[in-house]
């Protein structure tokens, strides 16, 4: 049974490897792009590594929900998520902390939802569903 701390520690090591950063640069609340300098190609690399490290499968849409890449004006208008869009996002990203984002839900700020903690919570849920945690 993997505790949240154990999963968080392994996720952190995975990110250190994928992003070539120092262990002490990484904190649970660090955002992948803003704080740790991840680029879009790194996200794919991170997914691959998490799959190998934890022995799980991560379909793309599970970590990056459809609502996050929408062009539907009912969900995203003038670069901001509508209340309906925000609700869809929350449904698709149950492990993200929306408290800051929902104050000003600009699409350009979406990447800030991807924190080390968020990824660890996501992985822990996957492990639990697979009977590994």
């Amino acid at each position: 049974m993997a505790s949240h701390e154990e999963v968080l520690s392994k996720v952190s090591s995975t990110l250190v490897e994928a992003l070539n950063i120092d262990e002490d640069e990484i904190k649970p609340e660090s955002t992948l792009t803003g704080d740790l300098g991840a680029e879009s190609i790194d996200f794919l690399d991170i997914v691959f590594r998490l799959e190998r490290e934890f022995g799980i499968k991560i379909p793309r849409e599970e970590l990056f929900p459809e609502a996050a890449q929408t062009s539907d004006v009912e969900l995203l208008k003038d670069g901001k998520y509508t209340p309906k869009g925000l609700a869809e996002l929350k449904k698709g990203m149950p492990f993200a902390d929306f408290s800051e984002f929902e104050k000003n839900p600009e699409a350009s700020q979406l990447t800030n939802l991807f924190t080390v903690n968020m990824i660890a919570r996501f992985v822990q849920d996957k492990l639990a569903k697979a009977g590994k945690a």
Partner: peptide, 10 residues
């Protein structure tokens, strides 16, 4: 080839 899936490979 270490890993291959629909989006890419390592």
């Amino acid at each position: 080839l270490v890993h291959i899936r629909p989006e890419g490979a390592t």
